[in-house]
């Protein structure tokens, strides 16, 4: 893997979004790279990440006279984080890959668990 070899999947995307939010205006791929500083990935990797974010609908391309710039689709705010978290854990047809600490035990699970902990008191 070129650049950012210690990064976990998605971390580069998250960091890129972070940079776009901090910029507060459309920025080019090169400017994003500059913002990464010494930890920057390669330009190709950067463009791939930006492309992926565009496909996911989180970033949009903005044409400028010197090429293409990028800006985040969703504005950042604490309210957004709250809403996103609610949407994530509250959704009816929730992704099975999503695992919460609170779990999602339904009434039947609760009964099973209760029966396992408190053995029936009949003789």
């Amino acid at each position: 893997m070129a650049g950012g070899s210690r990064r976990r999947p998605g971390e580069l995307e998250a960091a890129t979004l972070r940079i776009l939010w901090d910029a507060g205006r459309p920025v080019s791929a090169r400017q994003v790279l500059e913002a990464f500083g010494t930890d920057a990935p390669g330009l190709t990797a950067m463009l791939t990440v930006l492309d992926r974010l565009v496909v996911k609908g989180q970033v949009r391309r903005v044409p400028t006279d010197r090429g293409v710039s990028f800006e985040p689709v969703v504005a950042e705010s604490a309210v957004v984080a709250e809403r996103m978290l609610q949407a994530l854990v509250g959704s009816r047809d929730r992704s099975a890959a999503l695992l919460r600490f609170a779990g999602e035990l339904d009434a039947r699970d609760v009964d099973l668990l209760r029966a396992a902990i408190e053995p029936p008191s009949e003789g």
């Binding site: 998605g10 971390e11 995307e13 998250a14 960091a15 979004l17 972070r18 939010w21 996911k56 609908g57 989180q58 969703v74 950042e76 957004v80 984080a81 996103m84 978290l85 949407a87 994530l88 959704s91 047809d93 929730r94 992704s95 099975a96 890959a97 999503l98």
Partner: peptide
């Protein structure tokens, strides 16, 4: 639905 959840989680991780 996995991709949607993943996209939201990514946004969360960035914020």
């Amino acid at each position: 639905s996995d991709d949607e959840a993943d996209a939201v989680l990514l946004l969360l991780a960035a914020s």
